[in-house]
Amino acid sequence: MVLDVSVLEELADAVGGDRPFVVDLVETFIADGEQQLTEIATALAAGDAAAVVRPAHTLKSSSATVGAPALAAAARAIELAGRAGNLEAVAGDAEMRVLRETWDDATRELRAWVAGETA
């Protein structure tokens, strides 16, 4: 699933229906996630397995919070590959391509959700 809107709804409920907070959080996620994606790409280009782990891990946990399970799974795959020092699989582009695609999908739906909220 690209975006599980129920996660965002639950979050909104949990903060007492403060939807602008959730909107703000999603925007933070997108801005922050761009940075992690760049860091992952840089680390891969440098063949630095250890440097992949931190941004991949952060992206994984943030995306779970905003209800993007597919993205979380893709980031987790990269984190695990990085931890295992097995960069070939990732650098071989398959996983990185999956990550980029899931990122694009997730952020597109998140932006749409934000647009719906702020309309």
Binding site: D32, S61, S62, T65
Partner: peptide, 10 residues
């Protein structure tokens, strides 16, 4: 303490 700013903010 959390590495994710999103999680910290929540």
């Amino acid at each position: 303490v959390d590495d994710s700013v999103v999680n910290r903010r929540v």
